[in-house]
């Protein structure tokens, strides 16, 4: 799962700290470029609010686990590292699960079991393994923030589109006059697949243009 650019970041000229942050937003965006952690991306992106909440929850877990893994990187032997990372991640997921319940029961109901499933989001484990276990706390925080925000943006851009087209609303406020015929398919599971496909297509086109230029 190790990312080539991370090794490059270590060995070659020291990258600026802003770069650790920026890369997650665009060049290595977890949703659109790495296509990691797809299960929550598709499952709870049917409304903008759900998508935002899920993105922030994931970003929180990512940030906390990156900090802890980075702090403990000299304490954890190689043989038990994956088990330790999973324990750490599961802890923070349990914490955010209770925190969301304490904020709003309705939100917790609509996100359902998918909060718990943050544990198996490959994005978090891969950041712990590929970045936090080899870098200082400061860098790991920047990396987690960049990746977390990138993930949230990705989720949100899916959720917003699906809610606007599928429900005619944005954050629950109706946008269109009553005559608007909702595209029901967008809030169905199939809509998740289609919207993500459309976004990836857009990214592919941009990438192709850039490489030509």
């Amino acid at each position: 799962m190790s990312n080539p650019s991370d090794n490059a970041a270590q060995n070659n000229l020291a990258p600026s700290s802003t770069d650790e942050f920026i890369k997650g937003l665009w060049r290595e965006n977890p949703v659109f470029v790495q296509v990691l952690g797809m299960c929550p991306v598709l499952a709870v992106s049917n409304t903008a609010l759900n998508a935002l909440a899920m993105g922030l929850a994931t970003a929180f877990v990512l940030l906390m686990s990156n900090i802890l893994v980075s702090l403990l990187r000299n304490f954890i032997p190689k043989e038990v590292r994956i088990a330790s990372y999973i324990l750490i991640i599961a802890t923070f997921v349990t914490m955010i699960d209770y925190a969301i319940q304490a904020i709003s029961v309705d939100l917790h109901k609509s996100l359902g079991a998918f909060i718990s499933l943050i544990v198996v989001n490959c994005l978090i484990l891969s950041r712990a393994e590929a970045f936090a276990s080899k870098n200082t706390v400061g860098k790991s925080i920047l990396d987690a923030l960049g990746m977390g925000i990138g993930f949230t943006i990705g989720l949100f851009s899916l959720g917003a589109i699906r809610e606007v087209l599928g429900n005619g609303s944005f954050f629950g406020y109706s946008l269109f006059p009553v005559q608007f015929q909702e595209w029901v398919v967008m809030i169905l599971p199939a809509g998740g697949f289609f919207t993500l496909a459309a976004w990836l297509l857009l990214f592919n086109v941009i990438k192709k243009k850039n490489s030509k230029a």
Binding site: N74, P77, K78, V80, R81, A83, S84, L87, K134
Partner: peptide, 28 residues
Amino acid sequence: TIPTANSFHMLRAMVGIGTLCGLLIVLT
């Protein structure tokens, strides 16, 4: 950067992390 393992270190790491995690969860 990653220390070489012996059973004591592995045990220490797992018990330490386990305790920390348990504490955090129960507090929340």
